[in-house]
Amino acid sequence: MLRTIKPKNARSKRAMDARSPKEVEDARTAIFVKGTHTGETLNAVMRDLMALKRPNAISFNKKNPIHPFDSNTSSISSLEFWAGKNDASLFLVGQTTKKRPNGLTFVRMYDGQVLDMMEVGVDSWTGMDSLKTPKSTPGHKPLMHFASELFDTHPRYIQLKSMLMDFFNGEVVDSICLPGLEHVISVSCAPTPASLNNAPVNMYPNQQPSAPEDVSSLPKIHIRTYTTRLLSSGTRIPRVELTLMGPNLDLSLRRHKAADTELLKQAMKRPKLKKTDIEKGLGKKRKNLEVDEMGDLRGRVHVGKQDLNKLQTRKMKGLKGGELDAEEDDGQKSDDGDDTPRKKKRKQA
């Protein structure tokens, strides 16, 4: 149980307010943690990923004996402690062992607790420095691109997509400067094997968390980072060309821990829509209603199309004796049966 802290001066009050929950959240801060042993590859990978994540990134310099998937250790409580201390809600833990070489673990937090975890292995890697190409400005928002049907069907890949989106692009912004978009992070998969296409989808991944999963059948993930170049195309939409920027990662999925349903439900809660937003047309659709400049709600009612043939105009003697005209009209038109009711009446008479 956390004690409630009362700020003693204005500065600490401001700091506490900055950390308090907000309706529209800031970008998630990520902490980059080294495990007991990280090789040269992992160090470089984490440095490059940190360069992409900056300025919302904190790096821990020292090694930490941390094993997020080992529930016997106090790793989870350390993660939670660090998250609270640094006001961070994402972790990237690097750890290389003989059994699982070059492992990266993404950990996502909600309300100071671990929400879900995902481990990937780095199979091959090209750094940002080894490619002599233009780089993006640090702190600019990346575009994200995901390519594979698995990102919509397979729970592991859905989690991966959600995690990577949260990692690089989770902040909600209402407007953006289009020339400021400089780079794209592209995540794609190897072709889906037939076994994965036909296998029944496990609808309740939380039911058997201990059941060992055949990870080797899951297709590899390729993360590429490109800078974009906009060329004029003659239309309003420019033509895009990509240049490899780096880092380039080839990853394979390893262990994971799905989010607890109850915790996830809480984390997915959205704020209630404000009245002005609903009037603007968000949320439930409101048709034919608008607020005018006086602030009054005005509605539009559809009354159907008026049949002008049935319109009763002023009766005048001059117009009445139209027997001849009517006959002429009938004569001109062929007998395709598009007589108006008025004409019919006249014929009967």
Binding site: M144, F146, A147, K161, V184, S188, A190, P191, T192, R224
Partner: peptide, 27 residues
């Protein structure tokens, strides 16, 4: 979220032929 998702199955032929070119054209 400035995100695009391509839900088409990955073309195995072009994937095996030239990985980098395939990924770049997809992206």
């Amino acid at each position: 979220y400035l995100t695009v998702t391509d839900l088409n199955p990955v073309d195995e032929e072009s994937y095996n032929e030239n990985l980098e070119a395939h990924l770049q054209s997809l992206a």
